[in-house]
Design a protein around this nucleic acid. Structure first.
Lengths: 206, 206
DNA sequence: GCCAAATTTAATCATTTGTTTAAATCAGAT
DNA sequence: ATCTGATTTAAACAAATGATTAAATTTGGC
């Protein structure tokens, strides 16, 4: 009957190949034949295991997006860590994550622009963010005068901008500044320590 | 013979339509028929005025990219403005520019990933940046102890990250934070004043 | 008003691409 | 060993798409 788990490998190989190709080229520029070739298998298998290119893509996108968002939500909702610690954790963990999978940020922003609602309604970020423990912490710190910027949205935008933007701009940064791959990675490593310092300084700016 | 400048309008209409569609959907997802329809004209005109979809795209991309880069280069090379003033100028002018054309940042990062070399070798940023007046200013300020972060690349990444990232993440921010279009624009307006404050605080962080 | 060149149109081509089909092969239960 | 259903393959289809062609129309100088 079933070919056991060993043959989940076929399905899994296709998914892995799809991830690779979609990450690199995006949905529209990806040919189903590219995925089949990357996976080293017959074209018809894509439609045998997944119903269509679109469904395969949705699968990859949902997994990717939810993994990416989940991480920050869980940090923000940790009731045992200070604001400072949360900053350090987000900077450090996201930079490591993105160094591992450098194409994810550009993949996400590129693809979401085409179907923002469809992609985002699947992931309930709004609830999770607006009612997070972090929000309480932040507002408390504001009322205690420890933070000058009252709007936590700015804070999150700033932190994520410092962390994620360099990776999104990577090709331009490397060309514009004349950096090698390893020099770029080195720079990003430095930022794991610097971003918390910068962010904390920003919080007290006025 | 020639239909005068009035008929540059046809050529110009096609370019405008191409800009609109390419900005919104990217090269791969754009159909030449989409552009023709957007311009309200016959499909064959695209190939009559421009040789192909690819050439039309290159034209739009080069103009867009060079306009975008030019702005920062000219600010950085202004020998009459202080570092502080440069920060204020970049924040203010880029935010205004991007509010006018909100799709440009995502367009640029999405499309450059597919042909980084091809797109970037056309624009000589490296020279212009590494030898800019700004670099001298920055290094002087570092040696005078006014700035703690010695690497100007970090500084530029930070400033552009604070300015550009929110627009790139716009769909996620709006969905995740539950914002309307005008609330989002309002937030961005606030940042014209805040980013200089934040950036200056970062420069002195240690 | 007429002509030559420029512009525009409608129709068609050739290729690419997502998907389907039907046959072949394989794995494992009996 | 054989049979059944799952898996894989090769081939083909239909629609979409970038590009071209040849004919029609328009433009401006004479």
């Amino acid at each position: 009957m079933q070919k056991k788990n060993i043959d989940t490998s076929t399905e899994e190989k296709i998914k892995a190949a799809a991830r690779t190709v979609f990450y690199k080229k995006g949905f529209a520029a990806t040919r189903t034949r590219d995925i089949a070739e990357e996976a080293g298998m017959n074209l018809a298998l894509l439609n045998y295991y997944f119903r269509s290119k679109a469904r395969l893509f949705e699968l990859i996108m949902t997994e990717t997006l939810s993994g990416f968002v989940q991480k920050i939500i869980s940090v923000l909702n940790n009731e045992k860590t200070s604001l400072e610690k949360k900053i350090e954790q987000i900077a450090s963990e996201y930079i490591d994550l993105i160094i591992e999978e450098p194409e994810i940020p550009t993949f996400i922003v590129s693809e979401i622009r085409n179907h923002p609602e469809a992609m985002l309604k699947r992931i309930p970020v709004k609830q999770a963010f607006l009612h997070s423990f972090f929000i309480q912490q932040y507002q408390k710190a504001v009322s205690e005068g420890k933070i000058t910027e009252p709007n936590p949205v700015h804070f999150i935008l700033n932190l994520l901008g410092l962390v994620v933007f360099p990776f999104i701009a990577k090709p331009m940064v490397m060309a514009g500044m004349g950096l090698t791959k390893s020099q770029f990675t080195q720079l990003m490593q430095e930022r794991k320590k610097s971003i918390p310092l910068w962010t904390k300084a920003m919080l007290k700016a006025k």
